[in-house]
């Protein structure tokens, strides 16, 4: 295989996340290859969202290391990690409901632009120029995710499917190399789910690596290159979709759960 293809963009090493006595992640080790879609699945409470929170700097892990492009990031703040090139969406959509669709994406451009509070206050020429740049970049992102016609609408007014898509767009506006998508298809109908899956594939085609948490097994099996299974904070399996589908530990973990994900 080509050297660049096998390069690990993210390495998680012996990560432990404890909330008081509750162990949400236990000695977790895994790597993500650049340019891949890696899915993380597991029953409710397995620690998937917690893992995203650790990777994106919501809170530091209790123990262990997280490396992004060989750089340790486990003690960095969320905004610093965003700047390095990791972005995310949230399981419960966290759009800026006080803004338009376009403005939401424009906030995503925040980290790739500079313009100070004071310069903005005086509306210096360079600020105007940058605003125009941010706007056109945000429009490009809207074009990519297919929400151009709704750019001026309030983010709040969109149907759930589009809100989830917009959240992905906002994450893309940060120009990430790795995006963490937390259940992008949850609550969506079949057409919306298909649209989300297609979008994720197109993001991959742009060369962006994707970490995907998703309960919809059809989506996961369809688009993932690799799957990791978490259960009670521990990795119980990892491999290509075919291997995971036939793994008895995985089947057991899911059958033991309250819901049927098959």
């Amino acid at each position: 295989m080509n050297e660049t293809l096998t390069e690990h963009i993210l390495e998680v090493e012996e990560v432990v996340m404890a909330f008081g006595g509750l162990m949400a992640l236990i000695n977790l080790n895994f790597q993500v290859k650049k340019g891949m879609i890696k899915a993380i699945i597991g029953p409710n409470g397995a620690g998937k969202t917690t893992l995203f929170n650790v990777i994106t700097g919501t809170f530091p892990p209790t123990e262990g290391a997280v490396r992004f492009k060989r750089q340790s990031i486990e003690r960095l703040k969320a905004h610093e990690i965003a700047k390095l090139g990791i972005s995310r969406t949230f399981q419960t959509v966290e759009l800026f409901t006080n803004m338009s669709v376009l403005e939401n994406v424009m906030v995503g451009c925040h980290t790739r632009t500079r313009s100070s509070f004071i310069a903005s206050g005086f509306r210096l020429p360079q600020v105007k120029r940058k605003e125009a740049q941010i706007r056109s970049k945000a429009m490009e992102v809207l074009e990519f995710i297919g929400l151009t016609d709704r750019s001026e609408e309030s983010a709040d007014s969109l149907p759930l499917g589009d809100r989830k898509i917009l959240e992905i767009g906002r994450a893309l506006a940060t120009e990430p190399e790795l995006v963490c998508l937390d259940e992008p298809a949850a609550g969506l109908n079949e057409t919306e789910t298909q649209a989300a899956a297609d979008l994720i594939k197109r993001i991959k085609e742009k060369g962006i690596t994707i970490l995907l948490v998703e309960h919809d097994m059809k989506v996961v099996m369809d688009i993932s290159d690799e799957i990791m299974v978490l259960n009670y904070g521990e990795k119980i399996a990892e491999g290509i979709p075919e291997e995971i589908q036939n793994n008895h530990k995985v089947i057991e973990a899911y059958l033991g759960g309250e819901e049927d994900y098959a």
């Binding site: 994106t56 969320a78 905004h79 965003a82 972005s87 949230f90 966290e94 800026f96 409901t97 506006a173």
Partner: peptide
């Protein structure tokens, strides 16, 4: 925009850098 974003969600704002 950053200020208005913070008002609604600190988590999402910091994830946007």
């Amino acid at each position: 925009r950053a200020l208005r974003a913070i008002h609604i969600s600190e988590a999402a704002s910091s994830a946007m850098g």
